[in-house]
Design a protein around this nucleic acid. Structure first.
Lengths: 187, 187
DNA sequence: CAGCATGTAGACAGACTTGTCTATCTATGG
DNA sequence: CCATAGATAGACAAGTCTGTCTACATGCTG
């Protein structure tokens, strides 16, 4: 591991630990041990555990949006493109590392007073809604701006439910059902 | 506080703390302080913090189902009865103490290995699905068993999304949108 | 090669965690 | 009233947490 990548390495290791075990149940000492770095190194890169949390959210989100975009782009010839959202989720669900929505997990764990983190999560969710809206508007069926925005929000809700509930129930039925509903509201 | 109610009192105090501040961020010492009891008293009633958690989930669920049933029973003359689910949620959302879904919060916080707690949450969610199914089947429109079950699951997903996302976004739009979708799928 | 930015090991501080335990007190019910 | 179940205050144990700090080492770049 070169020094140029130390920060990324820390975020990567912390991300895995946070996502699998939870933020509060992952201690600083575990991160440095897993990352094989000194504590001072960690604190050279991050002022606090909360900053690592923010880096975690940012990194996960960026990767997620990048992967989703690529998934979408590779399937641009299909009808009802937005349904790929659920196919994308199904692939994630089938991974052994799937542990639900990291944003929801963090949101459940952190104190209410951590407004910066909560605001970040909201922004990221809004970006997802915007992506969905973009996909919808790219389809043949023309809708008004208001319609598209409402539809995007509704599809977002379905997607979010599918993520959280497939994890909670340890089953894919929420994904399939959410997709079925999505087909209905697209008509 | 009479001794007959000590256990209930502990659960009540712990429930508020867990729901507002999170399970992991609420310590035993805080519970005994808030409940104004001795530590030995707490451990006389519960073998561990996990047992308090289970009592918390059971108590919250029981209260929730009781309240929901009452809410439903008081409105049995309306069409599309199942939509009251979202009205019920809106009332909860408007409470200052609203903090999302306690099951989801706990589910996000506890280690994967706590299979008993996860199983309990699943059972409780299944009870909610069953309730929704009962409501659906009581309506004029006749559906097959399979149809009712699928619809119940779909409405459940909408409800769950509405709870979690209204909390996350600190806004009621997820509730309204979920309700709109529900109207659509009921046709 | 040399200087310096960054990394190291790990001690330290102060706080907190969950659960165990003791001697004594108190509320309840017969 | 009396016996007992349950409550009390709080010490104790062993561990963990986050963040600070020191003296030294090492990798990188000019």
């Amino acid at each position: 591991m070169s020094r140029a990548n130390t920060r990324d390495h820390i975020v990567s290791v912390a991300s895995d630990l946070f996502y699998q075990n939870g933020f509060n149940l992952t201690g600083i000492n575990e991160i440095i041990k897993e990352a094989d770095i000194a504590k001072a190194t960690l604190y050279n890169h991050f002022a606090s555990k909360d900053e690592i949390c923010i880096a975690y959210l940012e990194t996960m989100h960026e990767q997620f949006m990048t992967d989703l975009q690529a998934f979408y782009t590779a399937r641009k010839s299909r009808k009802q493109q937005v349904l790929i959202l659920f196919d994308f989720l199904k692939l994630a669900f089938d991974q052994e590392t799937f542990n639900g929505c990291w944003c929801i997990n963090i949101h459940s764990e952190i104190p209410k007073e951590k407004l910066d983190i909560k605001a970040l999560i909201k922004r990221q969710k809004s970006e997802l809604i915007s992506f969905i809206e973009t996909v919808i508007r790219s389809e043949e069926k023309k809708r008004s701006v208001a319609e598209s925005q409402k539809l995007a929000k509704q599809i977002y809700l379905l997607y979010e439910a599918a993520v959280t509930e497939s994890h909670l129930h340890q089953d894919a039925w929420p994904i399939q059902n959410a997709k079925d509903i999505c087909k209905l509201i697209l008509k």
